[in-house]
Design a protein around this nucleic acid. Structure first.
Lengths: 138, 138
DNA sequence: TATTGTTATACTCTATAACTATA
DNA sequence: TATAGTTATAGAGTATAACAATA
């Protein structure tokens, strides 16, 4: 049989991993985009909502509702930038950090289970290959 | 920095590959789902449209319109199954085979370019890992 | 009664355009 | 005038329900 498409393999793998993540996130009352946003903020607060949207490849208009929910749940805060009162600085609350850490850890355990058949070296190679693939400057 | 999510890496890689595929498919007047469907049929004709839909993970009601287009473009045929006149057997026309082969070859060249940095052994490992990942029986 | 293919409908996700407040 | 955030609206993609023909 002909070698399978890379795109098809990647798409199916992504679907599988997302399917495994969803119940874990449901348990923590997080949407997929909510988790992605918390992950981004766990690395650094966002100077503007616009920068945040582009950083996670999300539409800036949809970001509003997402932030509304996360703020309502006490996971993030929006505060005006004193240097530019048009902009809002978005950051994680302590509860937001906890929630993200819990989600990340549950997801990590699931990933380890999925990759149980792969050696540590295999995983390192996989991570590097995927990182290269997802870098559209290459 | 913390190790990145497998799901995030896969999703970004998938997006990247799809973005590279789209102009190649546009050139051949094929939609992404059209290409996926032709790929499936290039392996074997489909006994029923229902089986075809589930095989490519597509909604059976949306399949109708897709088949209408592909049939109109002369790439596939629907003929009633003589053994069960409810069912329609879907198969590629010669032009459908040609079109699919052209698309597959253009996409293969693109994949080779994206994976230029990876050795043949790396690729084999990647294919096996992704095949395992995408198998939800595991 | 159950199943294949189909149509009609509703719903979700996403993108476009227009508005406000600051700069 | 230009930009950050927001709202309202329209569009694509997807799923649900109901129908006709055949088994």
């Amino acid at each position: 049989m002909a070698e399978e498409d890379l795109g098809a393999l990647l798409a199916r793998s992504t679907r599988r991993v997302i399917a495994e993540e969803r119940p874990l996130l449901d348990e923590l009352d997080l949407s997929m985009w909510g988790y992605i946003l918390l992950s981004r903020l766990s690395r650094a607060p966002a100077e503007t909502q616009l920068a945040l949207a582009t950083a996670i490849n999300y539409d800036k208009t949809r970001l509003i509702g997402l932030l509304d929910e996360l703020e309502h749940d006490g996971l993030v805060t929006r505060r005006p930038d004193p240097k530019d009162r048009r902009a809002r600085i978005v950051s994680l609350t302590p509860e937001g950090e906890r929630r993200h850490a819990a989600a990340r850890s549950a997801i990590k355990a699931m990933e380890d289970r999925l990759l149980a058949g792969a050696s540590a070296a295999d995983r390192r190679r996989l991570w590097r290959l995927l990182a290269d693939l997802s870098d559209d400057s290459a």
